[in-house]
């Protein structure tokens, strides 16, 4: 009887609207998470993750954590995810983005572990005795932010200060890690030119990218006199990302199309000759 009553209070804690919201947005969040780990390009993963996080922010709001919901959107989705995107742009696209597995058995083991772990967690939650449902009405009575602040600056003040120190340390750490000290004088243009002469490479400026009748684009390699494309003509970033557009086939394709068109015309002439 008491269990029934507890279940009643539990189920009574949420409105039908929230249930609807949970089922719809929860599905989207899971899809977003799956996309995060399955998208080939890091940019797409980051965007999917941002979506999931926004949904989580909505859930926070629904659960009465108004401050966290806003922080989730502003700090997490706004700042941290943008930092991710920034780094993705900086690092560029690499072969690591391939989803093809290189370690034998890794994927199966990972799936097995994930599945097992997930089932265990779900079973664990299912077995947990969660009969109490109080709700935040009383705790949030004086305002969620005020309530949090009261806790943060009394009970958790030391942890709060220490996390502040942690953030400072992390900032400094990031600076130290990415900063490269210039230990020698910057070389002048003249010195650079002399070095190039000494090393005997690329005395003249780099060649311009290729020009094609329909394109005048930076991602097309220029052709050398013997017809082979020269990667030198494409800018380094595109080269490293492997985003050089190969147009060598296009000429053949065009030729084929031309021949076909000619053949159609000839067919007609053949038919006519028949």
């Amino acid at each position: 009887m008491s269990q029934l009553a507890a279940a009643a209070t539990l189920s009574a804690g949420t409105s039908t609207g929230e249930a609807f919201q949970f089922w719809v947005l929860g599905t989207v969040a899971v899809i977003g998470a799956l996309c995060t780990i399955l998208m080939k390009k890091a940019v797409h993963s980051a965007l999917c993750l941002a979506g999931t996080m926004i949904i989580l922010a909505i859930f926070y709001l629904a659960n009465g954590a108004y401050f966290l919901g806003v922080v989730q959107i502003i700090v997490y989705t706004g700042a941290i995810m943008m930092l991710f995107l920034f780094v993705v742009m900086l690092v560029g696209v690499t072969a690591a983005d391939s989803l093809k597995e290189t370690i034998k058995g890794q994927r199966w083991l990972a799936l097995l572990c994930g599945l097992g772990f997930g089932i265990l967690l779900l079973v664990g939650i299912g077995n947990a005795s969660l009969h109490q449902f109080i709700g935040l009405g009383k705790a949030n009575a004086g305002g969620n932010v005020e309530g949090l602040a009261a806790l943060l600056f009394t009970k958790y003040v030391f942890a709060f200060e220490i996390t502040g120190a942690l953030l400072i340390t992390a900032t400094l750490g990031a600076m130290v890690l990415t900063h490269r000290e210039r230990v020698e004088r910057a070389r002048t243009q003249r010195e650079l030119a002399e070095q190039r002469v000494r090393e005997g490479k690329h005395l003249p400026p780099l060649p311009a990218p290729g020009v094609y009748a329909r394109h005048n684009a930076v991602d097309i390699a220029g052709l050398l006199p013997d017809g082979t494309p020269s990667e030198l003509t494409v800018m380094q970033t595109l080269r490293e990302r492997g985003q050089i557009r190969d147009v060598s086939d296009e000429a053949l394709g065009d030729l084929k199309a031309l021949e076909q068109r000619a053949a159609e015309r000839l067919e007609r002439t053949e038919e006519a000759s028949k």
Partner: peptide, 9 residues
Amino acid sequence: ALLFTIGAT
């Protein structure tokens, strides 16, 4: 739990 497992995988 589901999201956590997906992340771990």
